[in-house]
Amino acid sequence: MTGPVRRTTRPPALVLVLAALGLAVFVVPLLGLIARVPWSRLPELLAGDVVGDALRLSLLTSIAATVISALIGVPLAWVLARMEFRGKSLVRGLVLLPLVLPPVVGGAALLFALGRRGIVGGPLNDLTGIVLPFSTGGVVLAATFVAMPFLVITVEGALRNLDARFEGAAATLGASRWRVLFRVTLPMILPSLAAGLALTWARALGEFGATITFAGNLQSRTQTLPLAVFVALENDRDTAIALSLLMVVVSLGVLIGLRDRWWRSW
C-alpha cells in the first residue's frame, strides 16, 4: 500500500483516462478535418467571393443575434429569476424548447409563425410589407431563436445565486431601480453574463437547420458559413473543408480572446 498522502497528491488514474476520452470527443473530429485540408489550394479556395460573403454575413448575423438576445433575453432571465407567477415552469420550459427541438423543426415553426402567410408574419406583412423569410433579418431571427436560451439559462442562474441583499443595500443608499440594475446587479453577474453571451454567439455562428428552413439559402443575403459548407459538401468538398477550417479558426480565436479579456474570474 502506498501512503494516503501520496495518493491524494495524484489525481485518480480513472479520472484522467475518462477526461482524455472526453477531450478526444472534441479533438478527433477536428484532426479528421485538418487531415483533409488541401493546404496548397487553401488561399485560392478562401479567396472566392462565396467565402467572403458567407464570412461577413455570419459575423454580422451572429453578432446581431447576440445583441438582440442580450436586449430581450436578460430581461426574460430577470423575470424568471425574480418574479413568481402562475405557469412559470411552463414559461421556463418554452424558453428551453429550442435546445431540445431539432433546429429544422424550429425553422419550420418560425416559417409557419412569421412567414408571410404565418399567424404573426401575415398581419406584419399586410401592415408593413416586411417579409422575414429569405431575408438577412430572417437569418438573425433563426439564430436568435436557437441561441438565446443559452443566455437566458446562464443569466437566470446567476441572478438566482445573487444575494438580493446587495440590491437592497443599493436601494437604501438611494439608488434608483435603473442604477441598481446597471451599477450592482449586472456588474455582479458579469462573469456569467459574459459566458452566456459567448455561448449565445457561438451557437448563433454555428446555426444551420433553422436558418436554411426559415431564411433559405442565397449568397450574400442568407448564406452563412454553415450553409455554404453544407452546399459545398454536395459538389466541392475542398471548399467545404476550407470553409469549415475558417469557422474553426474564427470561433476559436474569438472564444479564446474573450476568455482572456472577460472571464478572468473563472
Binding site: 441583499r165 446587495f166 437592497g168 443595500a169 443599493a170 436601494a171 437604501t172 438611494g174 455582479m188
Partner: peptide
C-alpha cells in the same frame, strides 16, 4: 415610500459591501 427615498442608513449584517 420605497427604500431609495427613505434616507435611512443601514449597516447590514455581513456588511454587504459591493464586491465589484
Amino acid at each position: 415610500v420605497p427604500a431609495a427615498d427613505r434616507h435611512i442608513g443601514v449597516v447590514f449584517q455581513d456588511y454587504i459591501l459591493f464586491p465589484h
